[in-house]
C-alpha cells in the first residue's frame, strides 16, 4: 500500500497550532514584566563566551588539542617534516602489523601512504565493501582539527568517502598544522566557506576512537568503528 504524503495537512496543523503565541519563558521570571523584545536567538560568536575557553594563540590551541587527544585516547604525533611523518607511518605499520591499507587520492596523504609500499585500496573510484573491510588501516586527510574538543572534521571529499574513516580498525589522519581551528563554530564556518552551497552529502566530527559505555557504563574503545585513532600533524 502506498502511503500519501501528508505535507499539506501537517503544515496546516502547525500553522493552526502556532496562532496562539507561546510565552518567552526565559525572558523574565516576573509575571508583570513586559515580554522581552525578540531580537532573535544569539549568534554563534556569542557561544564562545560560554563554552569551554580556548586560548587565542596557535600554540595554546595546539596544547589544548593535545590535551583533549590524550583524554580521548587519540594518539597524536606532531612532526617536524613530511619525512618524519613517513617514518612515523612506517613505525605504525610495523607495530600494528598492517598488511593491507586503504587510502584516497589526497595531495598530502597519498604520497605518504605510498611510501609504505603495502597493498593499498584507493576508495576514490568506488570499492567493494569486503575489500575495504579487510584493510588493517585507513589513512585519510581531513578538513579541520578542533582544539576545543579534540575533534577532526572530515567530509566525503577530504576523507575518501563515508566508510573509509570508519570501517577499518585503525584510522590515521594526516593534517597540517594550519588546519587547526579553535572551536566547533570556527570549523563549521570553515566548512561553509569551503563548500556552501554545494555541500557534500557527508560531514562528520570525529572525536576519539569509537567507544561505548553500554555495558555497566564502563568505557570500551572500538565498539563498531576504529579501535585506534592516530593524528599526524605535519608543518
Amino acid at each position: 500500500m502506498a502511503a500519501t504524503d501528508q505535507r499539506n495537512e501537517v503544515f496546516a496543523r502547525i500553522r493552526e497550532a502556532l496562532r496562539v503565541p507561546a510565552p518567552h519563558r526565559h525572558a523574565a521570571p516576573a509575571h508583570d514584566a513586559a515580554p522581552a523584545p525578540n531580537d532573535g536567538p544569539p549568534a554563534s560568536d556569542a557561544f564562545r563566551a560560554w563554552l569551554p575557553a580556548v586560548g587565542p594563540s596557535l600554540n595554546d590551541q595546539l596544547v589544548m588539542f593535545a590535551f583533549n587527544c590524550n583524554q580521548l585516547r587519540t594518539e597524536l604525533r606532531t612532526l617536524a617534516s613530511l619525512d618524519e611523518a613517513a617514518a612515523q607511518l612506517a613505525l605504525l605499520a610495523r607495530e600494528n602489523n598492517w598488511r593491507q591499507i586503504a587510502s584516497h587520492r589526497h595531495p598530502l596523504v597519498l604520497p605518504l601512504a605510498e611510501k609504505l609500499a603495502l597493498p593499498t585500496l584507493l576508495t576514490d573510484d568506488g570499492y567493494a565493501i569486503p575489500d575495504l573491510e579487510r584493510c588493517h588501516a585507513a589513512i585519510t586527510g581531513c578538513d579541520a582539527l578542533v582544539a576545543q574538543t579534540g575533534s577532526i572534521l572530515v567530509s566525503s571529499g577530504s576523507a575518501g568517502g563515508r566508510a573509509l574513516s570508519v570501517l577499518p580498525p585503525h584510522h590515521v589522519v594526516i593534517a597540517q598544522r594550519s588546519q587547526l581551528v579553535p572551536d566547533l563554530a570556527a570549523a563549521l564556518a570553515l566548512a561553509r566557506e569551503r563548500y556552501a552551497p554545494n555541500w557534500p552529502s557527508f560531514l562528520s566530527f570525529i572525536t576519539g576512537p569509537s567507544r561505548t559505555g553500554d555495558i555497566e557504563r564502563i568505557l570500551v574503545l572500538g565498539a563498531h568503528g576504529p579501535k585506534q585513532l592516530t593524528v599526524l600533524i605535519v608543518p
Partner: peptide, 21 residues
C-alpha cells in the same frame, strides 16, 4: 562527555563525484 564520538551531518544521498554513500 565533552563531545560525543561521532557527530555527523547528512545532506543527501551520494552526490556526483562522491565515491560512496
Amino acid at each position: 562527555q565533552p563531545l560525543t564520538c561521532y557527530n555527523t551531518l547528512y545532506g543527501g544521498p551520494r552526490q556526483p563525484g562522491e565515491c560512496d554513500g
